[in-house]
Amino acid sequence: MLTRIDHIGIACFDLDKTVEFYRATYGFEVFHTETNDEQGVREAMLKINETSDGGASYLQLLEPIREDSAVGKWLAKNGEGVHHIAFGTADVDTDSEAIRGKGIRVLYEEPRRGSMDSRITFLHPKDCHGVLTELVTAAADHSPDHHSGHTSEDRTKS
């Protein structure tokens, strides 16, 4: 069962400049940063609020590190802006299979590692009214009880 908006992914050309905009304009602070080599992005997660299911809602700012990454190709075609919406779930495996059973294309056969060691998959935008949709199960060690709201960490994923 989908429980919250986990994050909204925003593609940008310059991560540092975009982080500063959200900090200066709205007061949002960086909760987490990482480089995900598999997806070809540098990212920053800006925490917006805690949620009733123990998770949180974020803005995810994404800067491609390769032109051939999905975000790099998307930026070349569309420019900066909202790239995807992600819904939180306690069980991405079960929910993605249930959604697949309704005829929606799930882009990964098995969920993959995402930001902050979460498990993720995506739904095809053509089956979701033009919206690239991500399903996310947060890692237990990144819940609000296990992570301070002001720590950023840089980690390379492969």
Rank of each mutant, 00 (worst) to 15 (best):
S52P: 00
A56P: 06
T89Q: 09
R113M: 12
L75N: 02
G79V: 00
G9K: 05
K73A: 00
T25Y: 08
D154E: 07
A24R: 04
E20G: 06
E67Y: 13
I104S: 11
Y58V: 02
A138E: 13
S143G: 10
E97P: 08
F28T: 02
Q39K: 06
F13D: 08
R113A: 11
N78R: 00
S158I: 15
S148Q: 06
M1R: 10
V106H: 10
I85E: 13
E67R: 15
T94V: 01
T133M: 07
D6C: 01
D37K: 15
D154V: 11
F13N: 14
R23Y: 08
H32D: 08
V136S: 09
C12K: 11
D16K: 15
A98Q: 13
R155Q: 08
E97F: 09
R155V: 13
D95T: 13
R66I: 02
L75V: 02
D16F: 07
P144T: 08
E50A: 08
V106R: 02
T51S: 13
F87C: 03
E80F: 01
A140V: 00
E134W: 02
D53A: 09
G114M: 10
K157T: 09
G130L: 15
G81A: 09
I8M: 10
D154I: 11
F28A: 05
D95H: 05
L123F: 04
A90L: 12
V106M: 06
V41K: 05
A86P: 01
V131T: 12
L62Q: 00
W74L: 00
E80K: 06
A44Y: 06
V136K: 01
V131P: 07
D14M: 13
M1S: 10
P125L: 11
N36Q: 08
K17A: 14
S52V: 12
E50D: 10
L2R: 09
Y58S: 07
S57K: 03
V92F: 03
M116T: 07
L2G: 05
I65F: 00
T151G: 11
D93W: 05
E110S: 01
